[in-house]
């Protein structure tokens, strides 16, 4: 009985948070046109969230690509198909690892920073002060960061995949002796613009929206204390990661099921 009551409370809490999050999102979306019009601020925010994650993304992409080259080669060479290494590495990156891993890294690096920043602005009453100056903080502060995240995440995913392919080529061609021409031509022939690249972009846009939304919402919903902000920061990473994995499954099954 106790357990049921506990479960019921948790579910109700959840529904409530989801409701608040949706209202929050609707108000932020209403602020997007204004955010897009403030080009300077937007570029600054993209630079911030992008630059914060870029080095991490590039280094990780390189290593992931190298591992893919190694593992892919070991697998393919058994069937004498090591010429297809370029295709295998590129598909794995463009369809899955690029969007998913870059979104996870973005959540840990930039998303948590967004949650902390918004949470602290709330704690120090900066958001309330802005509201009292008749400037909606959701439009002025949150919307530009949201838009910046949506733009930055697909770019980061593209960089991740590009560097990953280079990593795979370095290992496959440079170290393991796969033919360079075959590596690239198989890749070019096999990667489909719509099925693979466009779907990969759709994924990372969705991840960008969801991770940035969760992070900003957690910051805005934080209990205005130091502990509250620290919890919001942690929670933004936990929820973002879960959302990325869950959505990746849903999107993959919708996109690549034929």
């Amino acid at each position: 009985m106790e357990a049921f009551a506990w479960l019921g409370r948790r579910v109700l809490d959840w529904v409530e948070v989801l409701g608040r999050g949706t209202v929050f999102l609707a108000r932020v979306l209403a602020g997007l046109p204004g955010a897009a019009a403030r080009v300077r601020d937007l570029v600054r925010q993209i630079g911030r969230v992008g630059a914060e994650s870029m080095v991490l993304i590039l280094v990780s992409g390189l290593f992931v690509g190298m591992v893919l080259g190694l593992q892919g080669y070991n697998m393919l060479v058994r069937f004498g198909a090591e010429e297809s290494l370029g295709l295998a590495v590129a598909l794995a990156l463009v369809r899955e690892l690029g969007p998913v891993v870059s979104a996870l890294l973005y959540a840990g690096r930039a998303g948590s920073a967004l949650a902390a920043e918004i949470g602290l602005m709330k704690t120090t009453e900066q958001l309330a002060a802005m509201g009292m100056m008749a400037v909606d903080p959701l439009h002025r502060v949150v919307a530009p960061r949201f838009l910046a995240g949506i733009i930055a995440v697909p770019l980061l995913a593209a960089m991740f995949s590009a560097v990953g392919v280079l990593g795979g080529q370095f290992v496959g061609v440079g170290l393991l002796g796969v033919d360079d021409g075959a590596f690239w031509s198989q890749m070019q022939a096999g990667v489909d613009l719509r099925d693979d690249i466009a779907n990969g972009i759709v994924k990372s846009v969705v991840f960008g929206v969801v991770v940035t939304w969760i992070s900003l919402f957690q910051g805005h919903d934080a209990v205005p204390t130091s502990e509250g902000v620290s919890r919001a920061t942690t929670r933004s990473v936990v929820w973002s990661s879960l959302a990325v994995f869950g959505l990746d499954f849903v999107l993959t099954s919708l996109m690549f099921n034929d």
Partner: peptide, 23 residues
């Protein structure tokens, strides 16, 4: 409504107890 409230606040200046400057 929110927009009327904001119109009212535009005619109002508030000094917060802790200042609440934008950092």
């Amino acid at each position: 409504s929110r927009s009327r409230l904001y119109a009212m606040r535009r005619r109002m200046g508030v000094l917060f107890q802790a200042g609440a400057l934008f950092t």
